[in-house]
Simulated assay, not measured.
Amino acid sequence: MKMKKLLLAAFVCTALLSPLLLNAQRWEQVGKKGDWANTIGVVGMGGYLYSIEKDGTLFQTDKQGNYRQLGDKGLFDNADLLVSLDNEIWTIEDGSLYQTIPSKAVWRQVGKTGDWKDTQGMVGLNGKLYSIETSGTLYETSKDGTWRQIGNDGEFTDAEMLEAMDGHLWTVEKGTLYKSNMKTLRWQQVGKVGDWENTIAMVADRGFLWSVEADGTLFRTDKNGNYEQVGEKGLLSAVTRIIAMDNTLYVIENGTLYRTKG
């Protein structure tokens, strides 16, 4: 399996995937064609997809494709990163961290202004946020905004992708997959060198990493690095984003939202 590098700033999200994907990969359109053409970030949680448009407007979309605007138009116009943690949306805007509670449509700044100005990737894991800065240094942030450095300076300099699963951080570095245990602070290579050099999108769930390659082929990889192709080769060739939620895999293709239908 050869996979393509992806900038760490790409958004990745986690939830549940259906075993039906192993035997069939049928898709259905969700909502109207082109509804997602301006989407720059999306997460799935609580049965809804939450997305930010290029103009900074936040939307909530249900499983039928019905959507509604949350908050004022353009409220998130400076958002650089979007992740979910404990049914809350966390964004980095102009280098500062913000927490948004969708159910109440309220948001607040967390921590000091500018503390996250060098962040290039972030995920939520076990009630905390883990972020990698442009220097390659890893940080752990509590929900009150307090943070601490994890490991030595620049240990993740070569990280291109970042995901959270099974108490570990999973990174792709120079096309190779690694996992880091946040309790023991130990890391190890998973699978073979270069297996991930053509990956363009990745999501984690139920002990597996699901990834799309540059040629549009979907793969499922277990914790030991063993992988298998899912569905037809190149079926997702126009996909730009992949999201998993409630036993379903969602993708955005040419500005339109699709999901698996077993």
Rank of each mutant, 00 (worst) to 15 (best):
D115I: 05
G127V: 15
T199H: 02
L185H: 14
G124L: 04
L70N: 02
W210V: 03
H168W: 09
K104T: 08
P19E: 03
Y139N: 02
E133G: 09
A201V: 06
G175Q: 04
Y48K: 04
F208D: 09
T240Q: 09
Y139M: 05
L209G: 08
Y98L: 01
D215G: 07
T91R: 04
L138Q: 13
V110L: 01
Y258P: 00
Y139K: 00
L125W: 13
F208S: 04
K112F: 04
E133R: 08
W27I: 00
N198G: 14
E173W: 07
I89E: 01
A214H: 10
E28I: 12
T91Q: 06
D62V: 10
D153R: 13
T176V: 00
L185I: 12
A204K: 04
G145R: 08
S84A: 14
R220D: 00
G34W: 13
E160S: 14
T221F: 05
T248N: 07
L75E: 11
T14M: 01
Q189I: 12
D246G: 00
K143N: 07
I252V: 15
V251Y: 01
T184H: 10
L177G: 07
Y227K: 02
L7D: 14
Q25G: 13
Q229M: 06
L85V: 11
Q69H: 06
D72L: 07
Y139A: 01
L209I: 04
